[in-house]
Every structure is written in C-alpha cells, then in structure tokens.
Design a binder for these strands. Structure first.
Lengths: 177, 177
DNA sequence: GGAAATCTACTCGGATACCGCGTGTCCGAGTTATGGTGG
DNA sequence: CCACCATAACTCGGACACGCGGTATCCGAGTAGATTTCC
C-alpha cells in the first residue's frame, strides 16, 4: 500500500477521459467500462470529487459527471486531497514530551514549537505537494496526447457516441404483463 | 496512518539520543525507557537499522547499539528507507493498458515508457526524497540542542551513567538452592 | 392532434463486508561479565 | 596468588496476535426521457 491510493489513480484516469466532454456528461459506469475497472469502485470515488468542486453531477438517465472547472485549473494535488482527504505525510506522536527526564509536566522548551523531526517531514511534504500542485490535468493530458495517434481519439469519440445513443430509445417498451 | 510510519519516528528519536555516545553502547531497552515508549517495539526496529549499516550492534550484558557512521553522514532518508523499506509514494496499476478500445494486446504507444500520471508522482516523490536526504541526523540534533538548556545534557549523561553502572555487579549472586 | 400522466431504466449516493499492512507483544538463542573454585 | 569453570542476567533477533484503513461490492432514493393514454 502506498501513500497515494489506488482511488486517486482511478480518479485521475477518469478525469483525463472527461476532458473535452464538457457538454455530454459521462457516467461513472461508462468511465469504468472504458478502462476495464470495477464500476462500483469508480462510483465510490466521484462523490468526493463532486464535494471538492472538481466535477459537477447531473442525474437522470442521461446524467453523469462533467468537469466543474477548466482542466488547466485542476491540479493533481486537488484531486489527491479530494479523494484521500489531505492526510499528512507524517503523524507526529510527540515523543519528545514523554522523556522520563522531563517528568510528568515537561517544561516549555521541550514541547513548545514544532518537533525537530516533524519539521523535517513538513518540509519534505511541502516539496512533494508543490510538485503535485504544479501539474494540472491539462499538463498530464497533453503528455498523454503526445503519445497516442490522432486516429485513436476518433475511435474514442465513436465509442462515447455509441454509448450515448444506447442510453435513449429503450425506456417504456411493451409492458411485461 | 501516514506514509512515514511510527517506527521511523521512534527510530529517529532513538538515533538522536545515541549521538555522542559512540563509546558506551545504548541498549534498546534503555532507549525505550528513556523516552517512555514500548521496549518491545523499539527492539523490533533496530535490527533493520543494523542491516542498513546505520548502527552497529554489540551483544552481551553490556551490549547495545552504536552509530555505525558519524551523524552528519546519516540522512533522514537513510533511516526512512531502512525502516520502511523504500516503499514507493505511488503504486501504478497500469490502468492505461486496460482500456477496452485497445483490445487484449495494447499497442506499444499505449504501454511503453512511463505512465503520465505515474511520471507526475515520481517527480513529487523525488522532491520529497531530496528534501529528506538533505537533512542529516546532525542537523536535526543541532535544532534540538538549540532549544534544550545546557544543564539538561548533564542530567541525561547522569541518567546514562547510572543505567550503565546498574548493569554490572549483579550476576552470579548466591546460588538459589 | 396535443398535452398530461405513467412507467421504465438509468443515474447518483451512501452504507456494508473482506483483506492486508502496521502496530504492539512475546519468547527463544547467544554472549559477556561475574563470582566461586581448584591448583 | 593465579587461572579456570559454571552461573546468571542481560543482550539481540525473529516469530506471533490485534486493529485500523483501504479495497471492493451491493442496494436504496431520485430524476430525466420515452411511451401511452385521454381529451
């Protein structure tokens, strides 16, 4: 298990597919099927992205999710914090205050301010977060687009259109009984 | 639970206490008692530090651990990797290869090279590791020493000496039967 | 022919099990220093 | 007085349970669209 979870990975991949599809919402089921991952799991991720203001949900038979902001304004860090909940790199246990030499009531110099070890971790965490914040969804999408051949996007668009059409024209068919 | 574990925290705190005590080894029990943490847990950590070449173990009744290198040559990153085992920040599941549009045998352009999302994570991980590698045990110890009053170190030395004396003069007393 | 009601299938959203890693504890093997014993 | 030996307590080192967070799944509430029916 790594610090950045699989949920974040799925979320980022989904968001990349959603770029350019701001008009026609994509459902969590479509996104899951497209990538060959568990639909239930993907469905669990998106409510978090919606609460964070990264995507906007629309309900109903032709509903789904749409990016709530332009891709350049969504950073990887935003997605990570939205899904994993801003969990810290390091959880200081305040060991310094438990030293037997300090007694039950440690003096101020021992517990005031930030623990020196914690400070190192905070600096490292800041570097990490800055690196993640500097990369937007658009940046990542551009890197992906540089590799895929142009024809692939036509194939993708055709797949989306086919799925969109399959969602209409079926309801209220001949009554079972 | 955070990415950097409590084991690392305990290990770093112990190593800080060991600086300057290169002659008289400190046992894992002493280090635990000094800080008011579980002796069993501390004892579980040190074998990893020894295998990584950070500390040197000596056995027997007056045994214990000693820093294997000068404090300025031990970085926080060394300790983290030694205890937590160089676990990555992000574990890429290669989602890109599972896209249904690519079929069972994805073309080379889709799976060659590093996944774009993975690349972002690797850059962030590199930044984090560099920040951790730039801080040595000596640096952290200096930050701690700047806060503690000089008298405190005398108290600490006295405590160590008392513990060292308590370890001798007891074995082989009058036979029970 | 037009408009309202109904019905279906789809959507989101949260609540519920399973599993693996980290935390915490314990016990066994080996070694060193001590104290006594014999020469 | 010196060298040897047995003893005991301490050390390290790895193997064994408990609990929490992440992964994966399922089911219920609500909504938009299409069909059907009635005027």
């Amino acid at each position: 298990m790594a610090h950045i979870t699989v949920s974040v990975e799925y979320g980022l991949h989904c968001l990349l597919w959603m770029i350019g599809s701001e008009i026609r919402p994509m459902s969590s089921r479509e996104l899951a099927e497209l990538q060959g991952v568990s639909p239930s799991f993907v469905a669990k991720i998106f409510p978090k992205l919606e609460k964070a203001g990264i995507v906007r949900a629309s309900e109903g038979v032709r509903g789904g999710y749409v990016l709530a902001k332009p891709a350049p304004e969504i950073s990887c860090l935003d997605v990570i914090d939205a899904i994993d909940g801003k969990k810290p790199l390091f959880d200081c246990q305040e060991v310094r205050g438990g030293c037997v030499l300090l007694g039950k009531k440690p003096p101020g110099w021992a517990i005031n301010g930030t623990c020196a070890i914690h400070a190192v971790m905070l600096r490292a965490e800041k570097s990490m977060r800055e690196a993640l914040a500097s990369q937007s969804l658009a940046d990542v999408a551009e890197a992906v687009g540089r590799k895929a051949p142009p024809e692939f996007w036509n194939t993708f668009q055709a797949w989306v259109d086919k799925k969109a059409e399959a969602r209409i024209g079926k309801p209220a068919r001949a009554r079972p009984a």
